[in-house]
Design a binder for these strands. Structure first.
Lengths: 138, 138
DNA sequence: TTGACTGCAAATGCTTTGCACCATT
DNA sequence: AATGGTGCAAAGCATTTGCAGTCAA
């Protein structure tokens, strides 16, 4: 997903494409990590010092509502972390370094659907996070 | 697990068994839901009006550190929710009623261990939450 | 006795909001 | 022109903490 794609989705959703939003969208699309609101704010200020924290919060909130970003709250730290919605995946958090590894698993997808159905529910969403320590770290 | 069991675990861990703690432990053991700090506080006040919110926070924090309770942060609401640690299980949250259904699955346990190992990690902890809507609600 | 525990109130820290001004459409 | 967006500062809220008094061991 490019920044242009994301901008278009926002426009389609009825949002005005302002300068602060363009900066924030670009930061999100290019982030290789899972930045916190504070992180996004710091990066945004480098490009436009006038951008305020409030705008970052409001923009991330809107994007989350629209489903264009995912908001994570890893039990690791206190801060919410964001990433642009793309292919469905889950996270493994390295308890020592805080590093986040993404993974997918068709097996998990199948089982969670099955479990929800067995319980009498239609699965709408799901959160799976693994927390671990690196093996034979040498 | 009875309140006595839990009290003993706290004593073994070196905690002093005070009146406020006894009340809180009893509330947790008998809770059939997943009470928030506020919930525990409200229930505690019914038995001893002098118990303070700070003590509830401190006690739940200690119990969490000792691994005697689990702290959950469902994406549903803002409040942390607690439950006494017992058999390992996961949760399905009813998006409409907020009801929480517990479930276990050996398949999930096997797969998550396998995934962690494949990624080069020793699994220490894991969070799996399903969010759904009740099927054919009639 | 004494270190741990408690209630209280103040302090924190992340997030939200009211408001007046400004920019996109 | 109209509506939605922005920065700023103040307000909110869940949670934490300093402190002096209290209590379990």
């Amino acid at each position: 997903m490019t920044a242009i794609d994301l901008e278009q989705k926002c426009i389609d959703a009825g949002l005005k494409m302002t300068a602060p939003r363009k900066v924030i969208l670009d930061i999100l699309v290019h982030a290789k990590d899972h930045p916190s609101v504070e992180d996004v704010y710091e990066r945004a200020k480098e490009r436009d010092a006038s951008i305020s924290m409030a705008t970052v919060y409001r923009t991330l909130g809107l994007l989350d509502e629209l489903g264009l970003v995912f908001r994570h709250e890893f039990s690791d730290d206190q801060h919410a972390r964001y990433e642009v919605s793309s292919e469905h995946h889950h996270h493994l958090i390295d308890l020592e370094s805080g590093k986040i590894v993404e993974f997918q698993s068709q097996e998990i997808e199948d089982i969670k659907l099955k479990i929800a159905e067995e319980l009498g529910y239609e699965l709408v969403e799901c959160r799976l996070e693994l927390y671990g320590k690196k093996l034979n770290a040498k």
